[in-house]
Structures are given as structure tokens and as C-alpha cells.
Write a protein that binds this DNA or RNA. Structure first.
Lengths: 195, 195
DNA sequence: TGTACATCAGTGAACGCGCGTTCACTGATGTAC
DNA sequence: TGTACATCAGTGAACGCGCGTTCACTGATGTAC
């Protein structure tokens, strides 16, 4: 049998979370533990040495995906000049690449409509992550108060997540492109600071 | 055994589609045929006298739900005076009632993120239904050309669907209210005809 | 009009399958002595 | 330093369960005669 170094367990745990995070986003939380472990060349039984239940994994996988997403958006915004930051945010989120990459993309777009059936603990984590992303991007939003900008961020984020999910659901590639393109334009105009 | 009148079969079929349409919207397409038929006081075996497969039912249930939704939105718009029509559309869609009623509400909001895993035939039907709703509401949108207004309708619709789904996913009722309220305000402003 | 029969919506057992979870087991290690 | 032993990540069979689908069957009817 293989040898387990001191950090080996922790490492395996992280590999499970990472794989789960990608697979849940691609195929929903219905993905089985068997498939998940098999992808890591492990057997399903070992899963419970790392997590008390699948729900715990789901919560961690979703949280990790939100973190990843936040980092990516933040980076896109940081790399843009001040007057282009909002555009960078919107064009990164609503890019064709993000649309084609659900496994590595925004967990909100990937899971919105099934999320309300998740256990409360997972939904609570999602709520927290959404608020975090909103406050992360609030400074780019129009509005005279901090609260107003936070709310604008919530609207933009949930709207873009819906748009991305709809674009993915549709079979006609032209309709998909139209939706993404129109949304980029509309959101950019609607959320630009006026005056 | 019960007697079946001439229209009885057709009627049963419609009852199955109706129940499925509500249940799929509430709990996703994972709802079983057994549960569905049981709710109608029938047994699962009889299902296949009405549908070749579950996929066929899914397609019909989703299409029916989109039709229902279109009718409801159209009615809300018709009952509003001209300068209030856009407001009526947005406030109907993003109402607390609609948020609380996923079974009887918009199938797009209920199923967006799982829809891209449906069979192609179902996804194609969804694409068609989305275009239909867009053209139904296009005349309320800003834009100088018909195509521009159609695109605006697509953006508004997919954005509101995402907003509704996010509002449902969240556990904190205050966050839910904030999202809906802010979205109503923002979308109304953003999609009002300017000038 | 009366009778024999074909029809077919609905029944319920059965199929193979994958699910989440449990558990007795394996065996390489770090540790106690 | 050398040896006995406890630890515990990972294995794989087994559990009860629900899934979509099939199929032989039931039995009230409309229809053919």
C-alpha cells in the first residue's frame, strides 16, 4: 500500500474539495461521491475519512469556488485602468470563455436554480459569499451611499449570473452570443457612474 | 376498475403535464415519475401509456410553464396604463409573491442552471420559449430598432430570472428582500425609455 | 335487442442501475520501549 | 539501535433506497355481429 506522508491527508482532502468544486459546477450537486473519488483514483469508502457527509463537502466546494471567483474578478479589476474597471468586471464575467467554462467559473451561475434545495448550511454559506463579492465590487458601482453601491453590486451580480446561465442553457450559438453581447453592453451602460 | 370516458385519456395526460410542470419548477427535473403519478393517485406504470419517456414529459412541462408565464406577464402588462407597462412587467416578475411561488412561477428562474444538462430537444424548446417571451415584451423596451428592443428584452428577462433565483437561494430574508427591491428599482430605471 | 369480443388506461411486480453511507479489513508508518 | 505495537488513510463488499423503464395482467367499455 501507498505511503501517507504527514501532510498527505490534508492534501487529499484539498484534492477532493477541488475536484468536487469543479464537478458540482459542471454537473450540479447530483454528482456522486463514487465518481468524484474515482476521478482522484481513490475509492468511495475513503471519502468518509475526510468528510462527515456529502453536504459538508458541498458547502466547502461551493465556498472554495466563490473564493476562486472573487479572486479572479478582483484580479481582472486590478489590472484595468481606473476608468475601465467596471468594464473589465463585466466583460470578464460575461465573456465567451466564462460561458464555456462552467467547471472553472462562477458557482452562482452554475448552481443558482438548484441552490434553494441545498441544506440550510450550504445556502447560508452562499448568502455570505454573495455579500462578500458584492462588497468586493461595490466601490465600482454607481450610487451616493455605500449601501446603495452594495445593492447595485448585488443586482449586477445576480443579473449577470442569470444571463450566463441562460446563455449556457440555450442550444443556438447565435442566440447565446447575442445574449452575452447585449448583456455586456446593457450592464456596462446601466452601471456606469453617471455625470 | 374505473371507467374511462372518451376524453379521459387526454385529460389524464394534461393532468400529468400540469403536475409535472409545477413539481419540476419546485424541485427540479430530478422529481421521479413515481412521485408524480402518486400525486395524481395513479401508479408509475401507467405513465408510459401517455409519454414515450420522461424527457418528452419534461419538454412538454417546460413548454407549458413558459406559456403560462407568458400569459401572466402579458395580462399584467395589458392591465396597466401605457406609461406603467414596463413597471408592471418588472414588478410582477420580481414580486415577493413570484419569489415565494416557484412551483407556479417562471420556469426559467426555477430551472436555469440545470437546464444546460437537459436533452437537446428540451433545451431547444427553452430557447424558443425565451425568444417568444422576448418578442412578447420587446415593444416595452428602449432601443431604436426592433432588434435592439428584442435584445434588451433578452437581457432584462435573463437578468430578472437570475435575480429571482438568487433571492430564492439565499436564507436571510432581509437579504432576499434587499435583492428584489434593489433589482426592481435598478431594472426599471435602466430599461425606461430615455428622453 | 342481446351477446361475444377487441381495446386499452391503469396496475404492480420486476429489471438493472447508481446513490449515500457503513464497516471489517489492510498494511505502511511513527512511536514506545 | 532494534523490536513490538498502535494508528489511520484507503479498500471494497454490503446496506437500503429510489430511479426510469418494461411487461403480463385486469376489467369496463364500445363495437361487431
Amino acid at each position: 500500500m501507498m505511503r501517507y506522508s504527514a501532510e498527505h491527508k490534508q492534501e487529499t482532502r484539498e484534492r477532493i474539495v477541488h475536484a468536487a468544486s469543479r464537478r458540482f459546477r459542471r454537473a450540479g450537486a447530483g454528482v456522486g461521491i463514487g465518481q468524484l473519488m474515482q476521478a482522484l483514483k481513490l475509492t468511495h469508502g475513503g471519502f468518509y475519512r475526510h468528510f462527515r457527509s456529502k453536504d459538508v463537502l458541498l458547502r466547502e466546494a461551493v465556498t472554495s469556488a466563490f473564493g476562486e471567483m472573487g479572486t479572479r474578478l478582483q484580479r481582472a479589476v486590478q489590472n484595468a485602468p481606473p476608468e475601465r474597471k467596471l468594464r473589465a468586471l463585466i466583460e470578464t464575467y460575461l465573456s465567451d470563455a466564462h460561458c464555456a467554462n462552467s467547471a472553472g467559473g462562477c458557482p452562482m451561475a452554475a448552481l443558482i436554480s438548484e441552490a434553494h434545495r441545498y441544506p440550510r448550511s450550504v445556502r447560508a454559506a452562499i448568502g455570505g459569499a454573495i455579500e462578500e463579492i458584492a462588497s468586493l465590487t461595490a466601490r465600482l458601482m454607481p450610487g451616493t451611499t455605500a449601501e446603495e453601491r452594495r445593492q447595485q453590486a448585488l443586482v449586477l451580480f445576480s443579473g449577470m449570473a442569470g444571463t450566463l446561465a441562460v446563455a449556457r442553457a440555450v442550444t443556438d450559438p447565435e442566440l447565446r452570443r447575442t445574449i452575452l453581447e447585449a448583456a455586456r453592453k446593457t450592464y456596462l451602460e446601466a452601471f456606469s457612474r453617471r455625470r
